[in-house]
Design a protein around this nucleic acid. Structure first.
Length: 306
DNA sequence: CGGAAGACCTGAAAGC
DNA sequence: TGCTTTCAGGTCTTCC
């Protein structure tokens, strides 16, 4: 489930259960997720108090009063279920509830908190992982050292986009997915941002920069559309795919606002466009776009954009 | 060095 | 009704 808006939604949902609370009991139901858990993982958490819960790109970071920071990544299918002490269950940012917490299939980590909340990590595909690093080394740790700019921060500007993409022949789609350049976008929001900007996903990334490195109009447009689509998605609580019957406020709704993602064959929603959404494969992943309002040849779109 | 392809997993849906 | 194939929101490793 998780690109930046979904991870941010999870962060907000997890905060009341975790920030200020102490880990009373941490149970690992298997030795690894994508990677082995760190040495003595449960013991290092138990007794530690969470001082803050933040997000960097698609990662969650829980600062602890022990001088370590817990790093959480949801992979493709990771989610958290929270059982609150008042008996309510929520699944921040995702999915539906499926029975007793800690017993459902693929519940891999169960964290009992001092405030009575139980936070359970569930991940069918186990592409997610958890790590524990010294807080002082956080920015330089292996997960973050080479990470690109935050797309919702001041660092994300037409100027920085142009400099990052300058002289690149690689397609815009691939460049936007490269977490070393911009960190937090995934397949959905890259497709959506390119559509909003009227840019064909196979255009070379270098078209965002002029010869002198200054941003082109396309760079200005794309920077705004990236910010817009992410901001709207965060406000909608992210996107929830392949789910039904959610209860408590667990799910986001931005999937209803997709204009191209997973809409192959449907009419383009751009005003007066008349095109049809197509699907191609780029570096092994689906790309959805409208060939009419995202023309392949650099030039003006076939349709004026509001 | 950059970039593409493969690998890691499970499950849902589509195809036959 | 099965059985097989394809595809999925990510990213780390391997191989040019």
């Amino acid at each position: 489930m998780p690109e930046l808006p979904e991870v941010e939604t999870v962060r907000r949902g997890l905060s009341p259960a975790m920030v200020g609370a102490t880990f009373s009991r941490v149970t690992l139901r298997r030795p690894n997720l994508r990677f082995p858990f760190p040495e003595r993982f449960a013991q290092r958490l138990e007794g530690a108090t969470v001082t803050d819960l933040a997000r960097r790109a698609k990662y969650l970071t829980a600062g602890l009063d022990t001088g370590e920071t817990l790093i959480l990544h949801l992979g493709m299918s990771g989610r958290f279920d929270v059982a609150l002490p008042d008996g309510r269950n929520v699944s921040p940012g995702d999915f539906y509830l499926e029975g007793a917490l800690g017993n459902a299939k693929h519940d891999h980590v169960v964290m009992a908190m001092s405030n009575g909340a139980t936070v359970t990590y569930n991940d069918a595909r186990r592409f997610g992982f958890m790590d524990l690093v010294p807080t002082l080394d956080l920015a330089g740790c292996k997960h973050f050292a080479a990470m690109g700019i935050e797309p919702l921060s001041e660092a994300m500007s037409p100027e920085s986009l142009a400099l990052l993409f300058r002289n690149k022949i690689t397609p815009l789609k691939a460049a936007l997915l490269d977490q070393r350049l911009i960190a937090g976008l995934g397949n959905i929001y890259v497709c959506e941002a390119l559509h909003r900007a009227g840019l064909h996903p196979e255009l070379p990334a270098g078209i965002l920069a002029k010869d002198d490195g200054r941003p082109t109009m396309k760079a200005r447009l794309l920077a705004r559309m990236i910010r817009d689509v992410l901001t709207e998605a965060v406000a909608a609580g992210g996107s929830t795919l392949r789910d039904y019957a959610h209860t408590d406020g667990g799910s986001g709704s931005f999937q209803h606002a997709f204009r191209v993602y997973d809409r192959t064959g449907e009419p383009c929603s751009t005003k007066d466009c008349g095109g049809t959404i197509a699907r191609i494969v780029q570096s092994g992943r689906s790309t959805f776009y409208c060939a009419t309002c995202q023309p392949a040849k650099p030039g003006k779109p076939a349709v004026s954009r509001a």
